[in-house]
Design a protein around this nucleic acid. Sequence first.
DNA 1: TTGTGACCTACTCC
DNA 2: AGGAGTAGGTCAC
Length: 357
Amino acid sequence: MAASADGGRQAPGAWASLPVSLEELCLGHTLPVGQTFRWVETREGAFTGVIGSRAYEMEQMEDSVRYRVVARGGGAEGASTASDESRSDPSIEDAEVLREYFQLRLKLADFVEHWSGRDERFRAIKGYYPGARLLRQDPVECLFSFVCSSNNNIARIHGMVNTLCRLYGTELRRPSEGLGQGEDEKLGEKLYTFPTLEQLSQCTEEALRANGFGYRAKFITGSVSALNAMPGGGENWLLSLRDVPYKEASAALTELPGVGPKVAACVCLFSLDKFEAIPVDTHVWRLVKEHYKPELQEKKSLTPKLMDLVERALIDRFARTPGGRTTCSSCPSSPSSRSGCRRSCRPRPRGRRRRRR
DNA sequence: TTGTGACCTACTCC
DNA sequence: AGGAGTAGGTCAC
């Protein structure tokens, strides 16, 4: 724990360590692959990003991941999903937030073994993507991030999510000594929480359009309004979807403007514990036609019905047990997620891929 | 039920 | 140089 950061200078946030191997958690295969848009790679193998009301710096080490909190929320905790941190040791809470976010209670090796036994192709390529984990994100953040994702690319989605945070989120406090000076060019000068629904309620379609959201502007304001109309509040309504079956949650989400089957699947998978959700995007669609369902080659467009079919095919292939039940309830990651098909297949033994910017 | 085009924007390819 | 194609789609016909 608490290794000193650099010889002399007192580090504002002490470094601590998560005892996980690269096979269990590789930051480079988990954070910049399109399931979250809140992390910036500040240098090789090191990322800075915000979870709830804490900003973390994380770095991939030989047999662990080290981290420190570089900024925190103010009095009003904003989008924090963690319980009250005043009651217990903040450093314990800091670690617990990470364990929950990275779902470290789930052992990735068990699932890699299971999928390897079910699919030859997975077996052949698994070594190229060690430690690619599924995150458990805040549903509000996840929803609005993926509403921005339609007809879009990762770099631009990243920019839009940052804009939402900068315009409507809460600025996080850095400890006294200016932390991380010098790496701020990539990071931006300030760190913000993702805005709460209440904060998002301030935004207008015109303001969003002026900030480059395009036709997604009315999706965002529309979804904010729809969520605000939910009895008990939109945040609670979204969280309550964790307790209903996947298809039910997905159907409820697609009622929101800007949320189609693909975005709903993303929100279900990345924030609502629906491990059987498979976001069928253009890449998954192509991959499935190429390797699993060649008879679909002739299909022109990807209709909701076909998305269902693709999803079922992948569930059958990877999650079905001989008894006919799926293993989805405990499945930590989907082998069909984009981490598999978008990345080159060059071996990266240390798992630290460069990202193009 | 499926197919089609519009929708914002930036970047790559040719 | 500049148009077409594409990027992790959704919506309205």
